[in-house]
Every structure is written in C-alpha cells, then in structure tokens.
Design a protein around this nucleic acid. Structure first.
Lengths: 147, 147
DNA sequence: GCTAGACCTTGCCATGATGGGAAGGTCAAA
DNA sequence: TTTGACCTTCCCATCATGGCAAGGTCTAGC
C-alpha cells in the first residue's frame, strides 16, 4: 500500500504520516525498491489509533506513550487511565481558561449598547486595568481614548 | 522610557513589544540618538490595552481592529460589540470542541478498571473507529493490540 | 514503446505568539 | 575606567499542519 492509500484508509494525511515517522511516533515505513513507503493493514490500524487519539486532543508525546501501552500486552489499565486522566485535567484547565474569557466578555457585551454612539464598556474595560477581572455585576461607564 | 521600563509598566514583555512593532500592531517606537526605543505614558497605555485584550484571548489581528476603534472617536459601539461577539462565538466553539473531547474521555475513564489488568476500554476505543463518538452510555469491551 | 497524468520522494517555508540565546553597542554608578 | 545592567538585531525552537517546488516512478491508454 502506498502512502496515499494508507492516508485515505486511516484518515491521516500523507504529510502527517511522514511527519509522525520523522519525529519517531511511528517506526520508519518499509520501502519498495524505488523508495516508495509501503504500508500494511497493521500500519493503517496504528495510524487510525493515532488519528483517533489526535481527535481526542492528545499531543504527539502522549500518543507515543499510549502506543507503547497499546503494544504492551502486560500493561496495567491503571497506567492508561492515568494518562487519560492527566489529559482530561489539561483539557479542563484549557476549558476553564477559555470560559473565564468568554464569561468576562459576555458581561461586557451585555453592558454595551451596540448602537451608533461611541461609548462602549468593552473598550472601557480594555482601557482600564481595573474592572471585571473578578465577578462584578454592574455595567461600567464610558470609554474614550487617551489624549 | 526604555523598553524594559515600558515592559514592566505594561505587563507586556520587551520581546513582545518588539514583535508587536514588527507586525504592525503598534507604530514604530521613537528612538533615542543611540537607537534605543523610547516610550511615553501614552504608549504604555496602549500596551496595557493590548495586554488586556490578549488576556481575553483576542488575536493580534482582532486587537488591531479594536485599537482602530479605540482611537476612533466617532466609532459606533455596535462595531466594537460585533467584534466582541464574534470572539465570544469563537471561544465558545473552542470550548465546545474541548468539552466534547473531555466528555468522551471522561466516559471512557469511568469505564476503565484502572487496575493491574491490561484490559482497557480507553485503548479499545482508540483502537476501534466505532464507539463513543456519539453519546453511548455502556462500557465497551476489552482491548488487545493487533498481531 | 511512448506519453500523460497521477503518484511518490525530499526539502524548504509559513503559520501564531512566545521564549531563549548570541554578538555586539550603550549607559550609569562606583 | 570598569562593571553590570541594559539595549540592539538576528537566528532558532516550539506544535501540528499545509503548501509548494524540483525531480523520480508508475500505470493506463494509444
């Protein structure tokens, strides 16, 4: 199987397959006499594993670990669970960060008239270091550039 | 004011101040005779604005627009509001992506014994293209590598 | 057998925001 | 004058991904 076929069969682009090989996530592919990479069904299976793990947000380094556990018949499921739980914690941290941003912005947007006038609590908040960093409820006042 | 002072006063690193200048987010700083960048209080004010906008997750291109509106005394608050709302939508999309990942993983983790045995629904899910893409509730079965 | 077109190879560049570091110039205090 | 803290520019690395270019290979149709 050529790299293009393997790509279509696994959902991983040819470019990324070469990349994963170059960074050691997957072993170097077998080669034909002319130098083309040759893949087996088992290779595609592995690529699909990688693809799925990427879809779940695992970084390449984490997938490296997961592949090791996958191949290790004597693995402990506790080890897999730990990797997954750490990743969940990481996802949760990122979610919280984004949600904090969204919440703050949402509060500001709710206070913004959104009409033809220039006064805008959103700009006012960006301008002042203070305000809405915490959990204020009141709409702030105007906003004019300095000068 | 030297770049280091401006950095300390604004919370933007000297490195990033130079970067923002290089990509045109801020105008080229004034220079002393010896070539040092020189900043005013007004410059620091702008840098703080940028810093705050970055903290809210705005990309440099968006901050460019926001700075334009900030400087425009005849802006319409509706324009600012639109930028903010688009950003909120973007944040929400990213949050949903991450939460989808976290939810799937959470379900799998809940199904994993996490003991000394190798059988693991997490690996099983990564291995099979099917399963838990949607909203299944049942814990799946084992997981052994191919070969 | 030849040719066209689809495929493969490697290598370089770009993304976005950020930090690290090197080599060399400037400044201020002791 | 020296020292140390600062500044300058330039290059490199991150992370996963795509794009492009130059050149080699394979296959189907004529």
């Amino acid at each position: 199987m050529n790299i293009g076929e393997a790509a279509r069969a696994s959902g991983v682009s040819a470019k990324m397959i070469r990349y994963y090989e170059s960074v050691g996530l997957i072993p170097p592919a077998a080669r034909t006499d002319s130098g083309y990479r040759a893949y087996t069904g088992s290779d595609v299976h592995m690529l699909r594993f990688i693809r799925r793990a990427r879809d779940l947000g695992f970084a390449v380094a984490e997938i490296h670990d997961l592949l090791g556990l996958w191949r290790d018949r004597s693995r402990k499921s506790a080890d897999v669970k730990r990797v997954a739980q750490q990743h969940i914690a990481d996802l949760q941290r990122r979610i919280d960060e984004l949600r904090q941003m969204a919440d703050t912005l949402q509060t500001l947007v709710a206070c913004c008239a959104g009409d033809d006038r220039p006064d805008c609590p959103i700009l006012a908040n960006l301008e002042n270091t203070e305000g809405l960093d915490g959990h204020e409820q009141h709409c702030s006042r105007s906003s004019r550039p300095p000068h």
